[in-house]
C-alpha cells in the first residue's frame, strides 16, 4: 500500500513539472502583448517599452521560466500584469467561490444520481427504470448554461426566491453567500447526476448477474438486500472513476455557469486573464488547476485501493 501511494505520488510530481513546462512555453507563443493591452490604442512605442520593462517582459523566456518555478516553490506566484496585485491572492479569492460551488454540485449529484441509479437497477426494465433513464438522458443533453437560465427565470425573475446571480463574500454574510450558490450548483449538478445515475445503474446491472449475488440470494436475501449489501460496493469502482473525473470537471469547467450567474469563480478569472494577456495570472491559475486535478486523481487511485483490496496487491500500471 505504501509503495503504491509513493509511486503514485512520484507520478504526480512528474505530471506537475511537465504541465508547468507546457503551460509556460505554450502561452509564450500566444500572439498579443499585455503592455499593449493595458495602454490601449493610444500607446506610443516609448510608453510600451517603459511598461514592458516595468512588467519584466523583456527578459529571455528561459530566465522567466526559472524565475517563475522558483517563485512558486517559495509560494510566490508573481504579480498580475493588468491587475497589479499578487496572483496568489487573486486565485485564493476565486477559490472561495469555485471550491464550495464544485463541492455543493458534487454532493447534490451524488445524493440524486446514485439513489436513482440503484432504484433503476433494482427494478430494471420496469416503468420506474425507463422513466429514470429518460430523465437522465435529458439531463445529460440539456446544456447547463441553458438550464441555469431557466432556473434564473423561474426562481429569480418570476418567483424572486433566490438572487439571479452574483456572490456575497462569506465573510460578509455566509447565508447570502450560500443562497447565491444554490441555483448555479443545481445547474451544474444536473448533468453530473444524470451521468452518475446511468453509470451506477449499468454497474449494478452488471453485478446483478454475478455468482456472489446468486449465492446471496440462495442464502435467502431478497434481491434488494443482495444488491444493497453486496452489489453496491462491487459496483462502486466505475462510479468512483467517474466521480473523480466529474470533480475535476466541476473545478475547471464551470466558466459558462459562472458567466450565467456572474459568479467570481476561477473559470472567469482565467477567461478574462487570457483575453488581457495577463500571462502570469493565467499560468498561476492553470498550475493550481493542474494541481487540483492531479491531486483528485491521486486520491481517486488511493480510494480505489481502499474500496477494492485486490488492487493493492496488483502492481499498478
Amino acid at each position: 500500500m505504501i509503495v503504491f501511494a509513493l509511486r503514485r505520488t512520484l507520478g504526480f510530481a512528474a505530471t506537475l513539472l511537465l504541465a508547468a513546462l507546457a503551460i509556460f512555453f505554450l502561452l509564450d507563443l500566444l500572439p498579443g502583448d499585455p503592455a499593449q493591452f493595458i495602454l490601449g490604442i493610444s500607446a506610443t512605442p516609448e510608453k510600451l517599452a517603459v511598461l514592458r520593462t516595468q512588467l519584466g517582459l523583456d527578459a529571455p523566456a528561459h530566465e522567466r521560466f526559472v524565475g517563475w518555478v522558483w517563485g512558486m516553490l517559495q509560494g510566490d506566484f508573481g504579480t498580475s500584469y493588468t491587475q497589479q496585485a499578487p496572483v496568489a491572492g487573486l486565485i485564493w479569492e476565486r477559490l472561495a467561490v469555485t471550491l464550495p460551488l464544485a463541492g455543493l454540485a458534487m454532493i447534490l449529484s451524488v445524493l440524486v444520481g446514485l439513489p436513482l441509479g440503484i432504484i433503476a437497477a433494482r427494478w430494471r426494465g420496469k416503468g420506474v427504470d425507463t422513466s429514470i433513464m429518460v430523465l437522465a438522458q435529458m439531463g445529460v443533453a440539456v446544456p447547463s448554461f441553458w438550464f441555469g437560465m431557466l432556473l434564473t427565470l423561474l426562481f429569480a425573475v418570476a418567483l424572486r426566491w433566490l438572487p439571479p446571480g452574483g456572490f456575497t463574500p462569506w465573510s460578509e454574510n455566509p447565508l447570502l453567500a450560500l443562497r447565491g450558490l444554490v441555483l448555479p450548483s443545481i445547474a451544474l449538478a444536473l448533468p453530473q447526476a444524470s451521468i452518475l445515475a446511468r453509470v451506477m445503474r449499468t454497474a449494478l446491472v452488471d453485478v446483478r448477474g454475478q455468482d456472489f449475488i446468486r449465492t446471496a440470494r440462495a442464502k435467502g436475501l431478497t434481491m434488494g438486500e443482495a444488491i444493497w449489501r453486496h452489489g453496491v460496493r462491487n459496483a462502486l469502482l466505475p462510479v468512483l472513476t467517474i466521480l473523480g473525473l466529474q470533480l475535476a470537471i466541476l473545478i475547471t469547467g464551470t466558466i459558462i455557469v459562472e458567466n450565467v450567474f456572474y459568479l467570481p469563480g476561477l473559470g472567469r478569472l482565467i477567461f478574462t486573464a487570457i483575453g488581457e494577456r495577463d500571462l502570469v495570472l493565467v499560468r498561476g491559475a492553470t498550475i493550481i488547476l493542474v494541481l487540483a486535478v492531479t491531486a483528485t486523481m491521486l486520491l481517486t487511485d488511493i480510494a480505489y485501493a481502499l474500496v477494492d483490496p485486490r488492487l493493492r496487491e496488483r502492481s499498478p500500471s
Partner: peptide, 15 residues
C-alpha cells in the same frame, strides 16, 4: 455582468 441574457435577468429580477 458580461453576458447579455444574464444582464437582462439581473435587470428583470431587480438585482
Amino acid at each position: 455582468i458580461s453576458d447579455t441574457s444574464t444582464m437582462t435577468n439581473a435587470l428583470l429580477a431587480g438585482d
